[in-house]
Design a protein around this nucleic acid. Structure first.
Lengths: 196, 196
DNA sequence: ACTAGTGTATTGAACATTCATTCGGTTTGC
DNA sequence: GCAAACCGAATGAATGTTCAATACACTAGT
C-alpha cells in the first residue's frame, strides 16, 4: 500500500542478495549496509534488530507472492485455466527472482519461521488453500484437504525452479509444459476422462 | 562401513538437534560440545572446522538416505510396488528423523551446498534418478527426464512430511495413502489404463 | 611383570576476531 | 528552527579456533 522508503527497499534488496550468497550467518549488518549504500546505523532506524529485518523482509516477499496469486486467481476463469495460470505465474516470479526463492526456502526451514505466530504465516496459505478449495468444491480435484493439495502444488513449483536455477538441468520447451501437467494429472478427480 | 567413533556420532547428533532448534547461525561450537558431552577442543580432533563438521554431517545423513533407497529399490520387484515402497520408506525415515529433514533442507538451500562439487552431491541423485530411469524404460512413467521425475518425487515426500511435522495438519489414515497416489497418477504414462 | 616409550584422544582456558548494536553528532526537508 | 533521517566510529558481547597440558592405549625391551 504505502510506498516503501527508498532506503528501506535498498536494505531489503541488499539483504536478499547477501542471504543468497552467504546465508543468514555470514551476512553481517555491516555488509548489508554497505551494499545498500547506507550507513550501518541507518538500518536501525528502519528495523529494531537483525531478526526484525529478516522477518519484515519475509513479509515483504510474502506479499509479492500473494500478489501473484491474486492476479491469477480469478473465480470467473475456468478452474483448470486458473490452475495453470497460477503455476506459470509463480514459476515465472521465482525464476525471475532467484534471490527471493533462496531466501524464502532458507527462512521457512529456519528457526525464524517457528517464532512467527500462525496467523501471519498463513496469510499466504489462506489464498493458496482457498483456490484449491474451489477446485475441490467444483469437482475438478480429488476430494483431499486443500492444505495438502496446496502444499504439494507449491512444492512442485519451487522444486522445478530450483532444479534449473541451479543449472543442473536445461529444460526443453515442451518439457516445461509437462510439469504442471504432472501435477494436474495427479490431483484431478475421476478415474479417467477424455482429453479436455 | 567402519563404525563411527562414539564421540564423533555424539557430535553429529548434537549438531543435528541444535541446527534444528537454532539454525546454522546460533549454533555455537561450545554448545555443540556441551550437548555432545565433550570438550570444545575435541570437536577439532575430528573435524577441521565448523564448516567441515557441517559438510561431513551432510554426507553422514546422505548415506543414511541412500541406504533407504537401496533397501527399497529392487529390480525384481514390480516397478509400481517399488515406487510406493520407496515413497513410504523415505517418508518414514524423514518422519522418524525430523532433525535430519530440517538440517537437510537448510543445508541444500544454503551456501554450504554450493561449495560442494557436483560429484559428491549427486551420489544420492544417482540412485534416485536411476530408479526413475527404469520406470521410463519399462514404460510405466511419462517419458520425461529422470531428473525431473526424481526431483518432483522427492519434493513431494519432503513437503508431505514437513506439512504435519509442523503440526499444521493431521492426516487421516486414508489420506496418507493418497499422497504417493497423487504423484503416481501424475507421472504414470498413458492416457488411461484399467486399474492395476 | 614392570618400565619406558609413543602416538592418539581429550580437555578447557585463553585468544583473536567478528559482528550486532549504540549513540553523539550531522545533514536534510519542511 | 525543529524533527526526522542519516552517518560511522566505538563498544561489548559472542564465538570459532588454538594449544599446552593431561589421560589413555598399546607396544617393546628387559
Amino acid at each position: 500500500m504505502e510506498p516503501i522508503a527508498d532506503k528501506k527497499k535498498a536494505i531489503f534488496e541488499s539483504t536478499l542478495e547477501l542471504v543468497r550468497e552467504k546465508g543468514f550467518h555470514g551476512t553481517p549488518m555491516s555488509l548489508v549496509a554497505k551494499r545498500a549504500g547506507v550507513a550501518a546505523g541507518t538500518i536501525y532506524h528502519y528495523f529494531e534488530s537483525k531478526q526484525d529485518l529478516i522477518i519484515e523482509l519475509f513479509f515483504y516477499i510474502r506479499d509479492q507472492i500473494i500478489a501473484v496469486l491474486k492476479r491469477e486467481d480469478n473465480p470467473h476463469v475456468p478452474f483448470q485455466k486458473c490452475f495453470f495460470n497460477i503455476w506459470y505465474g509463480l514459476h515465472d516470479y521465482y525464476s525471475q527472482n532467484p534471490n527471493v526463492l533462496m531466501f524464502f526456502e532458507q527462512f521457512v526451514n529456519s528457526p525464524y519461521n517457528t517464532c512467527l505466530n500462525d496467523a501471519s504465516k498463513s496469510e499466504f496459505h489462506k489464498h493458496l488453500f482457498g483456490f484449491f478449495e474451489r477446485g475441490i468444491r467444483e469437482g475438478h480435484l480429488k476430494p483431499l484437504s486443500p492444505k495438502i493439495l496446496g502444499t504439494l502444488a507449491h512444492a512442485n513449483i519451487i522444486s522445478t525452479v530450483k532444479m534449473y536455477s541451479s543449472g543442473h538441468l536445461v529444460l526443453e520447451e515442451g518439457e516445461l509444459k509437462q510439469l504442471p501437467q504432472i501435477l494436474w494429472d495427479g490431483m484431478r478427480s475421476g478415474e479417467r476422462t477424455t482429453k479436455v
